[in-house]
Computed example of a mutant assay.
Amino acid sequence: MAARPGLGRERNPLRRRSDRIQGYCALGAVFLVLAVLPVAVIIGLQTWHHYSAISDQELASSHLVTATVVAADPETRLARNYLAEVSWTYPDRVEHSGHLAITQTTQVGDRVPVWVNDSGSMTSAPTTRLSVWLDTLGLGLGLTFAAVLVGLAGYRASRFVLNRRRTHDLEVEWRRFNESRSQGYLN
């Protein structure tokens, strides 16, 4: 008899109940992943809008100025950099100074770029659009990957339990079969 489409409700003696349950578990894992995709997109879009607003705010209040290396301290050597004292003049005509990690090739008197806030104080570089995009992409892919892992783990766990149950049922059937055969030969 040819296979018929359907949900397995036909009475096929070779299709066990556990086979149908395993099929439903696989289908559930696929539906879980498909259900998470729109959620991942929505969360990704919300993350994009949130961090884009933060990036815009940081870009509006941060300015790139050129500072001059005043003193370099090789004693503060980090991996490939070391700390140096730098100074710059912000448009308010006030001299500012701070410490910045510079490369080993940078000498006293060299000019280096420094990010400053509206008051002229040194600040970290603003978040770029690329960084926002990569963070958003990473979050969406991470959520999807987590859903795939949960679905796969659930399916594998159900398959493990069902396989143990099938093995147990098969052993019981073989015992019954062997007992009935041995009783038939002895009589």
Rank of each mutant, 00 (worst) to 15 (best):
R4T: 09
V108I: 11
L34P: 13
T105N: 11
A26F: 12
R111H: 07
R80G: 09
T123P: 11
S52E: 09
I102G: 11
R129H: 06
L59R: 14
T128I: 00
G98R: 15
T103R: 14
A35E: 10
A53S: 13
Y90V: 03
L14F: 00
P5W: 13
Y51A: 11
V30T: 13
V69F: 07
E58F: 04
L45F: 00
D110I: 01
I42N: 13
R20L: 10
R93Q: 12
G109Y: 08
L34E: 14
T123Q: 13
L32I: 04
T76A: 03
V112I: 10
Q22F: 01
D118V: 00
C25Y: 09
A2I: 07
T128S: 13
Q57P: 02
V132T: 11
L45S: 03
V132P: 13
V39Y: 03
I42Q: 15
N12W: 05
L59K: 14
L83E: 06
V41F: 03
I54F: 00
L34K: 11
H50L: 08
A79F: 05
R11Y: 09
T128L: 02
Q46S: 13
L64M: 13
H49V: 00
I43K: 00
I102T: 09
P5H: 13
T103G: 15
E75S: 14
G98H: 14
